[in-house]
Design a protein around this nucleic acid. Structure first.
Lengths: 114, 114
DNA sequence: TTAGTATATAACTATTTGCTTATATATACA
DNA sequence: TGTATATATAAGCAAATAGTTATATACTAA
């Protein structure tokens, strides 16, 4: 079986994006479910613009898609994207991060949106 | 089948290293064969210290191993390393880069070491 | 021992990165 | 409307990064 390949340039750009712990965790989380910005702000304890900027970079590459629901915007991995097959084996090897969402619920710090 | 996982922290560090085009290409090249520093200097057209510093970072994480042969040091991917299973699916999706070595031979610019 | 070659390390610099605060935009709802 | 909430963008800054030149170290061979 011939593996499909990806340009080196593009691969490097994607790997660099995934090489940030915050973005990598976001990607692992939204590979399973859609999350909104406010959840990430709680989870990572950083400012809202910081999260927005991470999401912007992921979106610019087409790795994530967004869906507005009222005043919230939900982000999830875009599995239709041509590079998803490249990142999937990476995400699959990462430990599940859903406990971070559970923690939010338990603390009651999970915001109104979800 | 249960996939083995890797800590998020470690995964991010490895991906960041691979997120540089020079290092990524080096890794792809030495997944097949051992190469010495002087070859990389020719291939990437950067200074020798620049290559040495890239290799140092890869070695610090244990991703590559070195073998001295006389005055030359040959680098190759360390397939015994515990993280090799993490990076292998990534490298496998990259286009083969061996033509870069062939070009060196054809140009006669491939240095004495090889 | 000495000269030449290969590689590593140190020191410096320009660029990139990820964060912050301040502000703009978009939606919901009284 | 007008106010509150969610998100995006702009601007600025400190830290990290990848390159450079200069120099040190390690090995070869005369």
């Amino acid at each position: 079986m011939l593996q499909t390949t990806i340009e080196m340039e593009k691969a490097a750009v994607i790997l660099k994006l995934l090489g940030d712990k915050t973005r990598l965790t976001i990607m692992k989380l939204i590979d399973n479910q859609a999350c909104c910005v406010c959840e990430f702000v709680e989870i990572f304890q950083v400012s809202q613009p910081s999260i927005s900027q991470h999401l912007r970079k992921l979106k610019d590459l087409g790795l994530v898609k967004e869906e507005r629901k009222g005043q919230w915007i939900f982000y999830s991995v875009d599995k239709e994207n041509e590079y998803y097959s490249f990142i999937k084996p990476i995400l699959d090897q990462l430990p599940n991060q859903d406990y971070k969402l559970k923690e939010l619920e338990e603390n009651g710090t999970r915001i109104s949106c979800c």
